[in-house]
Structures are given as structure tokens and as C-alpha cells.
Amino acid sequence: MKIILIVTGIILLAFIVVQLFAMGSQNKIETYPYKVEKKYEDFEIRTYESRLFTSVKLPSGNYKDVSSKGFSILAGYIFGGNEENEKISMTSPVSMSLEDSMTMMFLVPQKYEKSKLPKPNQSSIEFREEPSKRMAAISFGGWANDKKIEEYKDKLKNALELEGIYYTNKFYFFGYNAPYEVFNRKNEIVVELKK
């Protein structure tokens, strides 16, 4: 019985240390820069800066089926899977387009120019310049899944229609946490607004 209590205590302590480390490291991660234009009850309007992303196109529009595959391809690149074996800092959020075939994107740290980025070992990885854009965003906690993504996408559409705000069909899922983070999980559904 005493051994079980000691082992349980060690596991609990390790879990707490990992969570505290995750929460601390979140504050140091470079994020996709934006300014909040207006806050509503359920969503906000933001203006995002133009930025460079690494991206990989995935064959399905199903989050569950493709999210881990896309993440491992792009993470492989930034963890040294490139011609220079160069490690590139992780950024936030991880972005996925919500289409029939999804595109997953990682923000490239601002210190890199497109021409200076190491060439990926995987030919499916592309560099993508995203122009500045106005977007509406709605947030939710916990772990994302297809049901939650669809639910918050519908909630955002309804809220925008109620306010008479015109949006495009370009919806994205933004995930802000590493898979092992348990507390303070943040996800967003964002949509580009019509000009």
C-alpha cells in the first residue's frame, strides 16, 4: 500500500511539473499577431498582420483523421527535418483550413525571410504568404474534435448573421496548446470577413 501511494505521488508530481512547464512555455511562444477591432458577446473582430506560414495539404476534411498526420509532417520540418537539420522555434496557433481537403499551417517565426528558410525534406511542405485580413473569432476550451468544431462554426455563423456581418466561406480552426497540456486549453474557429 505504501509503495502504491509513493508511486501515485511521484506520478502526480511529474504531471504537475509538466503542466507548469507547459503553461510557462506558452508565454514565450511567438503568436500570429492581430489587433482586436471590436468585441461582441460571443466573438470578436480582429485584423491579422500579413505573415509567412509553412503548410501541408491534407486529403480529408475530417479533423480527427488528419490533424495528427499534418502536425507530425510540419513538426518534423521545424524539429530539424530539413536540408540544414536546423531547428525552428514552435509558434502558435496551429491553423487548419476547414475545407473538403484541409491545409494545416504553422506560423514561421518573424526573424525568417522566405528565401532564407531551410528546404524541407518532405516535398508536401510549402511556404505560404498570407496577406493581412479581417477575421471574426469564437473561442472554446478543452480538446477539439469534429463535433465541437462544427458546433462552434455554426455558432459563429449565427452570431455574425445576427449582427449583419458578412463573412466568406474561408473558415479555420486555430489550436493553441500542445497535446499534453490539460489546463487552460484554448481553441478558436475563425472566418475571413467580406471586404
Results as ranks from 00 to 15, higher is better:
186 K>T: 07
34 Y>W: 05
38 K>N: 13
98 L>M: 12
23 M>A: 11
11 I>Q: 00
123 S>L: 12
144 A>D: 02
45 I>F: 05
6 I>W: 10
101 S>F: 10
40 Y>E: 12
115 S>V: 13
154 D>C: 04
42 D>R: 07
85 N>T: 09
86 E>G: 04
43 F>I: 04
122 Q>M: 07
165 I>C: 02
124 S>I: 06
69 K>L: 15
22 A>L: 15
70 G>F: 03
109 P>D: 07
115 S>M: 13
139 S>E: 05
31 T>A: 10
10 I>L: 13
192 E>C: 08
188 E>D: 08
5 L>D: 09
194 K>G: 01
155 K>V: 08
74 L>D: 00
115 S>P: 02
41 E>H: 06
129 E>R: 13
13 L>C: 09
145 N>I: 10
87 K>L: 09
149 I>A: 05
29 I>F: 00
92 S>Y: 01
126 E>P: 00
111 K>N: 11
69 K>R: 14
138 I>V: 14
110 Q>L: 11
26 Q>C: 03
59 P>I: 14
115 S>E: 14
40 Y>T: 11
110 Q>G: 10
144 A>V: 06
151 E>V: 06
137 A>Q: 05
15 F>L: 12
47 T>N: 07
155 K>A: 14
56 V>N: 00
151 E>S: 11
114 K>G: 03
20 L>C: 14
42 D>M: 13
195 K>T: 13
68 S>Y: 11
120 P>L: 06
121 N>T: 05
179 P>Y: 10
137 A>S: 12
43 F>G: 01
32 Y>D: 08
123 S>C: 05
91 T>D: 02
106 F>R: 02
134 R>A: 05
116 K>M: 14
146 D>V: 07
94 V>E: 00
110 Q>H: 09
183 F>T: 02
122 Q>T: 03
22 A>Q: 02
118 P>N: 04
48 Y>L: 08
72 S>H: 08
112 Y>S: 10
161 E>H: 08
123 S>K: 14
